[in-house]
């Protein structure tokens, strides 16, 4: 149905909370890259938090459905499918969509409430993850074509749980234990996707673990970081800001909490996929928001991306320090 009313390559761009407020450079990179790839992004005016499964779904399932349903109606106004950069938002919005499309009772409940603010969920749009848009809509082939520079990194791919599960309502042919699509996207950039133990394990941030038992949550992260360090990866690549926060900020925390058992502190750069895709496409690192300006304090990334960036820049012929200078002047 969406195909009839909207241009195939136009999307309602759902930002969520973590990316615009913690990782704006990921938003920058994604906007730049998708623009280059010819996808039109329509902002979702008035969109709220997806709402977060933690505080909403676990507090009150009906409210979670209503607020999620409201966000979907904004995309319906845009007449364009939703694309989201976050596994959490993806989980919420897709599962709300699925419930509203398949369960009459829930749809009626949600629409009864939405009616009070002049809205109605019609079921005319579909929610997609950015990975799905890149891999299926734009297509792996096109990504391979535009990714002209080999970045030459050893990459530890982290899929994140909600991108894959529950697999029954995900677009990856029921695959959740050994998916390949993200690895293929990374390989398209001339990188090696290194295998590591417990690759499909949760980052540790999900559900209430981080809030309820932080130490357990960080123990997950430590376990993953240890396995990744063992295989000598240059960096971690993921496509979820929540996982990214856990692997990036969590890395600093792990270095503190577990300092007695980890030996050397971890120092593994964490990237969002579009940041590396942009570099491989030959886009300027500054335009991609990759150069952190040193006068800005307390903003991510918390674990420096510098070692991996230097390696890439050497290959691409950029001078890291010059770029930092240029970025400084670009205030």
């Amino acid at each position: 149905m969406t195909d009839d009313v909207s241009n195939k390559m136009a999307y309602s761009f759902y930002l969520g909370c973590v990316i615009p407020n913690r990782y704006p450079m990921v938003e920058r990179a994604t906007r730049t890259v998708l623009d280059e790839l010819g996808a039109e992004l329509r902002d979702m005016k008035g969109a709220t938090c997806c709402p977060a499964p933690g505080v909403f779904r676990s507090f009150d399932i009906p409210t979670w459905l209503v607020i999620g349903g409201r966000n979907l109606t904004i995309a319906e106004d845009n007449q364009a499918d939703v694309v989201t950069m976050c596994n959490g938002c993806y989980g919420t919005l897709l599962e709300v969509e699925h419930a509203l499309k398949h369960e009459e009772k829930k749809r009626n409940y949600v629409n009864e409430h939405l009616q009070k603010v002049g809205r109605k969920f019609k079921g005319s749009i579909h929610v997609k993850h950015l990975a799905e848009v890149l891999y299926y809509d734009i297509g792996l082939k096109k990504i391979q074509d535009v990714a002209i520079h080999d970045l030459g990194l050893k990459v530890a791919v982290h899929y994140g749980c909600h991108l894959l599960k529950p697999s029954a309502i995900r677009p990856w042919d029921g695959e959740s234990e050994e998916p390949r699509f993200f690895d293929e996207l990374v390989e398209a950039l001339g990188c090696e996707s290194v295998d590591y133990r417990d690759k499909m394990m949760c980052c540790g941030a999900g559900g209430g673990v981080r809030s309820a038992v932080k130490e357990v949550s960080l123990d997950f992260t430590r376990h993953k970081l240890e396995e990744i360090r063992k295989v000598g990866a240059d960096c971690i690549v993921n496509m979820c800001p929540f996982c990214m926060l856990q692997l990036d900020l969590g890395q600093v925390e792990v270095n503190g909490v577990f300092k007695d058992i980890i030996g050397e502190p971890y120092n593994i750069p964490v990237f969002y996929y579009t940041q590396l895709l942009g570099l491989s496409m030959g886009l300027n690192p500054i335009d991609l928001g990759l150069i952190k300006q040193h006068d800005l304090k307390g903003v991510p990334p918390f674990t420096s991306q510098e070692p991996a960036l230097r390696k890439i820049f050497k290959k691409l012929g950029y001078n890291y320090d010059e770029l930092v200078e240029q970025a400084k002047n670009k205030k």
Binding site: C17, V18, N21, T48, V55, F56, L296, G298
Partner: peptide, 27 residues
Amino acid sequence: QGEAIREKGSAIPMSNAIIKRRERLGL
């Protein structure tokens, strides 16, 4: 978080540093 969403619609509060960062990134 619930309060923040009720007030601002977002689960994560916006900091000045981020506002500045967004501006410089042309967002």
